[in-house]
């Protein structure tokens, strides 16, 4: 199945789900006024569903490229999510060096100088810029 058909089906379903399920459940009904809060989201949902359907019928020749790259991006996304979760528990000061080191290591960096600079120097620079120079709090 072509990439456009896959994304077309997704947007067709998204538009329908928004129109029939999400918008009625998560937008309050209001009496009076010139424009109901549901009107614009409903129109947009219909447009998304229609365009998604059209894309299924008439896809372009777009290709998504190497699936291994998408899988790698998924892995890096998970790494970031884990880092963010850890930051919410332990704070930026402790997690940032580990996260920076992990990112550099997985990309393939093995030179000790750059690893040390990325894992210690950069977070320290950011700490100095934010907390000392700007007087703001780190996450």
């Amino acid at each position: 199945m072509s990439a456009d058909r896959i994304s077309g089906i997704f947007f067709l379903l998204l538009g329908l789900a928004m129109y029939f399920v999400v918008n009625p459940a998560y937008i309050e009904t209001v009496e009076g006024g010139s424009l109901n809060p549901k009107t614009v989201p409903n129109i947009i949902s219909v447009i998304i569903a229609l365009c998604g359907g059209l894309l299924v019928v008439k896809p372009t020749h777009h290709e998504v490229g190497d699936l291994r790259n998408i899988a790698r991006t998924g892995f890096y996304s998970l790494l970031l999510i884990a880092g963010l979760y850890a930051m919410s528990r332990f704070g930026f000061e402790y997690v940032a060096p580990v996260l920076a080191f992990a990112i550099m290591w997985f990309i393939g960096e093995r030179r000790p100088f750059w690893l040390a600079f990325g894992a210690v120097g950069m977070p320290a620079l950011i700490w100095f810029l934010v907390t000392q120079a700007l007087g703001r709090a780190l996450p």
Partner: peptide
């Protein structure tokens, strides 16, 4: 190296 650029950009 890109590795340090990406990690620094993400932290920023």
């Amino acid at each position: 190296p890109e590795s340090i650029i990406f990690s620094a950009a993400l932290l920023l």
